[in-house]
Design a binder for these strands. Sequence first.
DNA 1: CGCAGTTTTGATTCATCTCAATTTGTGTGG
DNA 2: CCACACAAATTGAGATGAATCAAAACTGCG
Lengths: 249, 249
Amino acid sequence: MSSGTSAKVLSLSLNSLKVACSQCNLRELCLPFGLSSHEVHRLDSLIETRRKVKRGQHLYHAGDVFEAIYAVKTGFFKTDVLLEDGRDQVTGFQMAGELLGLDGISGDAHTCSAVALEDSEVCAIPFAELENLSSDIPTLQRHLHRVLSREIVKDHGVMMLLGSMRAEERLAAFLLNLSQRFLARGYSASEFHLRMTREEIGSYLGLKLETVSRTFSHFQDSGLISVQQKHIRIMNTEGLHQLIKQKNC
Amino acid sequence: MSSGTSAKVLSLSLNSLKVACSQCNLRELCLPFGLSSHEVHRLDSLIETRRKVKRGQHLYHAGDVFEAIYAVKTGFFKTDVLLEDGRDQVTGFQMAGELLGLDGISGDAHTCSAVALEDSEVCAIPFAELENLSSDIPTLQRHLHRVLSREIVKDHGVMMLLGSMRAEERLAAFLLNLSQRFLARGYSASEFHLRMTREEIGSYLGLKLETVSRTFSHFQDSGLISVQQKHIRIMNTEGLHQLIKQKNC
DNA sequence: CGCAGTTTTGATTCATCTCAATTTGTGTGG
DNA sequence: CCACACAAATTGAGATGAATCAAAACTGCG
């Protein structure tokens, strides 16, 4: 009995070093979604490294050799692309259970940079091995394709937002999107902490930081939200929704 | 000899009805890229239908059940998403050798609509069967992943454009992009016919049609291009490039 | 406690949108 | 084959939302 227990402790501690999708509370959000327990264990064996990334540090830079995609285990990231002339733009924010680096698959290098906005941990998933495994496990293959496609759909949503919405609509859509993602992770949908600066929000939404700040103040005056620096409380979700839905004049 | 010839004629005519990637002059641009001739023949067997789509007709609508992706064989398409409030936005233009419908993989339905901007032909590729085949053919699997990822990278480019470029820069980038894609297909890079209206260009670029028209006129006055309705001639490619590269003041 | 980075707020400017009129092109039917 | 009607494109004048420039207030970190 006691030897059994110590063996279990040992195996648990090894697992926690090695990472284990099968033990991960994000498995319903992340790559293992829909896999049988046997299949998840095969996925486990792929993932050799869990990597800690301190706030402000890069997980990878644009131009780095692409070898793996990353699943956010804890923390919060942004990805951004850099133009030749120095302009850069945030292309997305990633939280627990979301994947990073999918853009790198198309070539041999990452096309954007990933930066941790708070101390974070990721699981590195070597992509060549993931491809091999997904040939064997149809469910995994199917899921990988869905994940890639979902990224495309998400980007279309952002294009929509950037191309045809006004500042207020963009910010409302942004807040509602964050809210939903927090909810899906078991956090409050109505009260949360922004990990990014006004400038990063603006970059993502195609607005200047002053416009973001002004729009927040405006929302607060209208009683839609309450803002205190990075702390956001949504007071009227429906109101935010209506802001977006209402016909552009 | 004569019976051999007639057999060949028969097989060719069947192939042209059935479509054949192995015979297609787009195979270097399209899905068969990188496959051995044996593998291309296996891909052939997947593709049962070639479908003609008249100008103005839909290939599929947002909400249609997703069963296949489509490769453009000839012609020109646009894809667009529709918002609840009636606003819609063009998410892309597709020409020969490019794939349509990748956004549908994420769910069971297409998330955007595809419309032919001129009389066109597509090859329908049943996606479930493509997945099966790609489990068997690593090169095909790899290529499919690259295609999906390339779509993500392309969308990031559009997000960049919508989020941080001015009207002139957007239109210059658009023209240079079209120019390159025509060149890759053996057409002139400097002279081509726009298949889409100013309104569709504007929708794609997040601009109003009047702004597109004005910017075209402006480019013409600067000697960068010559415009006559839908006919475009690029006079100064480098000038267009510099327009984009120059720092946003 | 002080300093640097972040955020807020105000005044002004500018790019793009909006509204409107005109021209040009295209397709259809007599 | 031409004329008519409709769609698309051009151009102008004025309105407006967001950017820019600038200054002050707040926050959190060392």
